[in-house]
Design a protein around this nucleic acid. Sequence first.
DNA 1: GGTTATTAGTTATCATGATAACTATAGAGG
DNA 2: CCTCTATAGTTATCATGATAACTAATAACC
Lengths: 136, 136
Amino acid sequence: MMIDGYVSQTGVGDVDTVARALSMMREASQLERLLDAYFSSHNLSQLKFHILIVIDREPDKDSLRQSEINQRLDVSKPVLHRTVTSLLKSGLLVCRDDPEDSRAHRLALTDEGKTMLAAILPGYFKTISGFMREQP
Amino acid sequence: MMIDGYVSQTGVGDVDTVARALSMMREASQLERLLDAYFSSHNLSQLKFHILIVIDREPDKDSLRQSEINQRLDVSKPVLHRTVTSLLKSGLLVCRDDPEDSRAHRLALTDEGKTMLAAILPGYFKTISGFMREQP
DNA sequence: GGTTATTAGTTATCATGATAACTATAGAGG
DNA sequence: CCTCTATAGTTATCATGATAACTAATAACC
């Protein structure tokens, strides 16, 4: 919209690259909104979904510590804690004591959590595919 | 990371498209973070910057109503109000009564606001160009 | 010209992200 | 063993986005 004047005025970088970056950010934020709307229609959020996914996708284990989830997802500890608490409360996760470390817990999907994940995934990918198909 | 299994399991859309969308969102969020860090090092935010820009870029006028800014930027009224209030308080904007509508105000850049914008733009575009150059 | 609808701005409340600072436990080094 | 450090989780506080519901003023319509 208003890129041209400024980039040429400031003489930093080239106009096309900046325009491409801005349009990428706009596209991404549109898709994020679609996904947020989709998740919230199932009483979830992107982060809640990602938490369920990383536990479900973990090879060899069926549970993860909060700190392990933290290593896999790019989110701060307090936000993860708050969100895990909410997932426990809504019954999608269960929490067991970690036998090897009394500070830690192991978080696992409940049957309800697995059902939710299975129910939500098709629409998730459909939302993404549909959006990408519409892009010019 | 974990796309393959799921997309093929669910049979919705194609894997490459979904992977492309996810990587676009990741890229965009990285760039957003860089920009947020840049703005906050100048005591600004992306939204504050955009507000200054749309007022500065407006042809034929040197001020805008809040509602006009709202039409140009994709942000809710209360958030815009809160952010404009903060820009007024920090002296980058001034507020005058609108002679044609006693409900409205006209928001204009102060000299300090213009100076800030001029000071910040080169780094803004440099940040974007630099990021795009690094992308694989 | 008086009712009704729209619009400009504001307030209250909530959601979801962050950092800083805390407690409690584990682990390492002497 | 006893400190000292690092790690797991928690709490408090703040930033920045949203919606719903409000006030006051304008515009539209008999």
